[in-house]
Design a binder for these strands. Sequence first.
DNA 1: TATGAATGAGAGTTCATTCAT
DNA 2: CATGAATGAACTCTCATTCAT
Lengths: 218, 218, 218, 218
Amino acid sequence: MKNPPKTNKLSASALRREREKQLRRQSILSAAEILFAHNGYRKTKIEDIAGKAEVSVGTVYGYFQNKEELLTAVLDDIGLYIRKLAGKAFGDADSVLEGIERAGMAFFEELCRPYPEKVLLLCDESIGVGDQFVNARRNFMLKMTEDVHGALMKGKDGLGLKFASGISAEVIAVCTTAIFVWLGMYYKIWRKRPGDINTIGRETVTYIVGGIKSLMVS
Amino acid sequence: MKNPPKTNKLSASALRREREKQLRRQSILSAAEILFAHNGYRKTKIEDIAGKAEVSVGTVYGYFQNKEELLTAVLDDIGLYIRKLAGKAFGDADSVLEGIERAGMAFFEELCRPYPEKVLLLCDESIGVGDQFVNARRNFMLKMTEDVHGALMKGKDGLGLKFASGISAEVIAVCTTAIFVWLGMYYKIWRKRPGDINTIGRETVTYIVGGIKSLMVS
Amino acid sequence: MKNPPKTNKLSASALRREREKQLRRQSILSAAEILFAHNGYRKTKIEDIAGKAEVSVGTVYGYFQNKEELLTAVLDDIGLYIRKLAGKAFGDADSVLEGIERAGMAFFEELCRPYPEKVLLLCDESIGVGDQFVNARRNFMLKMTEDVHGALMKGKDGLGLKFASGISAEVIAVCTTAIFVWLGMYYKIWRKRPGDINTIGRETVTYIVGGIKSLMVS
Amino acid sequence: MKNPPKTNKLSASALRREREKQLRRQSILSAAEILFAHNGYRKTKIEDIAGKAEVSVGTVYGYFQNKEELLTAVLDDIGLYIRKLAGKAFGDADSVLEGIERAGMAFFEELCRPYPEKVLLLCDESIGVGDQFVNARRNFMLKMTEDVHGALMKGKDGLGLKFASGISAEVIAVCTTAIFVWLGMYYKIWRKRPGDINTIGRETVTYIVGGIKSLMVS
DNA sequence: TATGAATGAGAGTTCATTCAT
DNA sequence: CATGAATGAACTCTCATTCAT
């Protein structure tokens, strides 16, 4: 009797509540991402995030245990997005080298250019936050390294490529990520020279591809 | 009016006082550099800096207007050191490409490896500090770009090299600096694998040189 | 208007509902008592009480207006229990003095020893809660005083005893309650010396009886 | 030259500063004692204490690490005062029993009556504060027990008194302290009946002495 | 000029209470 | 009547900066 009949109606209401919960979580996350990137982790108050997400401070703490967890969640989100981007770029390419070029262009065109702030979070504010965040960033880098390694070893052209050493993939992942992160920071300066932006993007990718090639052995 | 009486005695004492003043300034700066790098800008208290420099809090404010100016001074110091390092590397080399390699190795061997924290200051903690610091970093990057540009255009071998475009030097400067900064961060992880460190250093430089070469035209 | 139709069926269901209501109220009260006593009033969250009583937070507020009322209800419960205990002890005794001793032992054996926390609620956390609670505690003490006074004046042995003054009963009630409350607190320390517990109990009752006797005049 | 001459003047200024420091510490402590006792530990804000002591919030934290340490310091202060009081009372008496009576009256006249709030801190607010405070209170009680034990065993009359058992002194210390603590609480009610106050005091001491005597063996 | 105690605005976090479902 | 997510006021503690000595 206490159990409500499992009609469509109730199920629907439960579903809707679940959907709203996800939406609210997402809106808090988005607000945090924007504010962290714009003003920095420390300067961003929970109150600001709550305000931007149009919820109360308490609600933020209902979805995230504390400020650091919020930052970690933001980072995870960005990492997921980046890896998807790269995966798609490689999937569309016919060879490893083309994949690299496409991924490079995708990073630039679809990440650094439209959302330079997202990329900055990977670098900025890392010291002094806490171990949880540092671990999250480390995990992101490890996954990136695996992705790069995997992509380079099992090219669509059937024959994988060989590297100078067993840790070359790691070096490549780190150097390449570094460039994009730094690029995000410089985008804030460069965006004022719109005529050069395309050239900068193209040449940066050229630099990256050149760097990667130099660590390959035929 | 401002001039003190120019007797010998006073002059000597004035000189000594001036010397002591410089020494004290330097000791505050060093303390700040070490602590900022180790614990991050935010977590470092003025009190800590004063303690390490063996002066009082008030004295720190006698030499630097505020915390941000202290960070800016630290950054300027590091920038100077880096440019000297690169200048010496290019000076010792017989060709532009050799200069690039030497500079790369110097960065790695004489900066990232012994002082990974110094390098981190270029990246971490940048957001949310203040405009003064952001400007200082921008200036550092602009000077770096000039250096790279100059070095590449006027090689010791007489004939300068040509680049894909007029802003290639800038792209190179930015990408290369990015890698070293990021390397500083990863050094903290990699230092636990001492066997790989040398390989990592060598391959990183290879990557950089490969990147630079790919933006050159014969 | 308020009256529901008096059909048998509904009446039965109404009764059951009433019973369930009482049960639920009781389970909330018990949960509160345990948690208040274990963790203190301040540290106990309404959420915890709801959780232990297996109801929702909102339901707690359906039965009690606010947190203070809950504490007051808990106190009333304990007070009732104590007075019953004392009443029974006196009822079983053949003389006033024997009643005093029996009551003392009952306090110790059936309250302080098994539920030291209950007794603590009378003392701890009293300041800063609110007037409602302070009043509840005052009422408890007034009733205790009446009980003591009544018990001492109308002993089973026919002839009541005389006191030093008109407020001696009050003094006795207060001092005796004080000892038991404090004993509850010390039980936490003493329970680690099980060998001494019985002696402590016996001697405490001796102290109390001695105190009471000294305020009597033959 | 940097060393200032150790003239009387400087020494005096250092002394004065030290004195002022102690005064300020004391004024913070007093403010805390009064507010904790009046409004309870939880309800008392650091801001209130700072306000009453006419210093800033930061200054409070310059003298005490955190709120709990402040409470602990307050307790230690009171404990010291109580033990001094008792010591003096016993010192003035010619026999152990007289000492007990004098100490009891001193408690009542010089502590409970003028400062009922002080006494309350020993009981109230104990749960939910922290281990540091609980330890402080336990230490206070242990010292009290020692004091009582010592006083009873080595009376001025040359021959110490014998007790029912080895832990009687402990039982006496605990019961007696309990009464005074509780008395402090009841003083708030009783103060409205000024005519009875003296009687209450006298009879309470009688109760205590009666209790103690009943644990003695000739 | 050096000192370091005092300042006080500011931020993260908690939790009693409410109310739409 | 039950639910539990949302609310937001309140509180503790930090630390850059000032200023009397």
